[in-house]
């Protein structure tokens, strides 16, 4: 069970964070320099697909991670940052904030940007800015999040 949950957590996590880095390091700079026609095509045929894998990857990563912690009977001590479980707990907190950013800020604002939800041009511009800042925040948070996740085992010797 443990192995299956860990596998699911990594598989979904790579999907999520891989697309997060694609958005920040590749797609945003690309959309800044292309023609309005190309941008419109990307908004119709590329960005919605990327966002689908991104948000569901985020949710499944969290669910598998939470199931792993529950399976190990350390969900409470992790989130309460108690003793050695504070290491994985910090990773879990950062991951939880990132999940809430995805579903609570990035996705609702992207729906306005993509025209899936009605919005005036001013609202669209504001939504685009909010989505970018939340996405950049998640990119920033992913750096310490991965540090704590990767070093939560006994073998790391860092804690």
């Amino acid at each position: 069970m443990e192995s299956l949950l860990a596998w699911g957590h990594y598989l979904a996590g790579i999907t999520w964070i891989g697309i997060l880095y694609y958005f920040n390091f590749i797609q945003v700079p690309f959309l800044k320099v292309v023609t309005p026609e190309t941008k419109a095509e990307a908004f119709k045929h590329l960005v919605p697909n990327a966002l689908w894998w991104f948000r569901w990857g985020a949710l499944f990563t969290w669910v598998f991670g939470a199931a792993l912690l529950m399976n190990q009977h350390r969900m409470g001590s992790a989130f309460l940052l108690q003793g050695p479980d504070a290491v994985i707990g910090m990773g879990a907190w950062l991951g939880t904030i990132m999940l809430l950013n995805v579903w609570g800020i990035i996705w609702p604002n992207q729906k306005k940007v993509l025209g899936l939800k009605e919005a005036t041009p001013e609202e669209k511009a504001k939504a685009g800015r909010m989505a970018l800042l939340a996405s950049r925040t998640n990119t920033m948070l992913s750096i310490p999040m991965l540090f704590f996740m990767a070093n939560s085992g006994h073998a790391s010797g860092l804690f």
Partner: peptide, 30 residues
Amino acid sequence: MGNPLDTISGTITAGFVLTVVLYGLVKMLV
């Protein structure tokens, strides 16, 4: 000084700084 999140390099730098800060915090708890 602008928002560090406006650039990729600023975002990554902020991520490393935050890692060091949180490492110190968790180190105290463990």
